[in-house]
Computed example of a mutant assay.
Amino acid sequence: MSRALPKYNKRRVAFIGGAAAVALSGTVIAGFALAGETSEGNGNSARTLAGPGTISCPDVRSQLPAVPASAKAEVDRNLTLLDTQLREANTRLADTVGQGGPDFVQNAILGPLKDKRVATVNRIATAIGRTAAKPQGLDTLAACTLTK
Rank of each mutant, 00 (worst) to 15 (best):
M1Y: 13
S2H: 05
R3S: 14
P6Y: 10
K7Y: 08
K7G: 04
R11T: 14
V13W: 08
F15K: 07
I16R: 03
G17W: 07
G17R: 05
A20S: 13
A21L: 13
L24M: 11
G26M: 01
G26D: 01
A30K: 08
A30C: 03
A30V: 04
G31S: 12
A33L: 13
A35Q: 14
G36T: 13
G36P: 14
G41R: 15
N42Q: 14
N42I: 07
G43N: 13
S45L: 12
S45V: 09
A46W: 07
A46H: 09
A46N: 14
A50K: 10
G51N: 09
T54V: 13
S56D: 05
V60E: 07
S62C: 06
L64K: 12
P65N: 14
P65F: 07
A66Y: 09
P68D: 09
A69S: 08
A71Y: 02
K72L: 02
A73P: 10
V75E: 09
R77S: 08
N78F: 04
L79W: 07
L81Y: 12
L81W: 05
D83C: 02
D83L: 11
T84P: 02
L86W: 05
R87D: 13
E88G: 06
E88H: 06
T91K: 10
T91C: 03
L93K: 01
A94T: 03
T96F: 00
V97H: 06
V97I: 06
G100C: 00
P102F: 02
P102Y: 01
Q106P: 00
N107D: 05
N107T: 07
L110Q: 05
L113P: 02
K114Q: 15
D115I: 14
D115F: 06
V121R: 02
V121F: 07
N122I: 00
R123N: 02
I124M: 01
I128W: 02
G129C: 00
A132Q: 11
P135A: 06
Q136A: 11
Q136M: 08
Q136R: 08
G137C: 10
D139E: 15
L141Y: 06
L141W: 03
A143Q: 10
C144G: 01
T145K: 13
T145R: 11
T147L: 12
K148T: 07
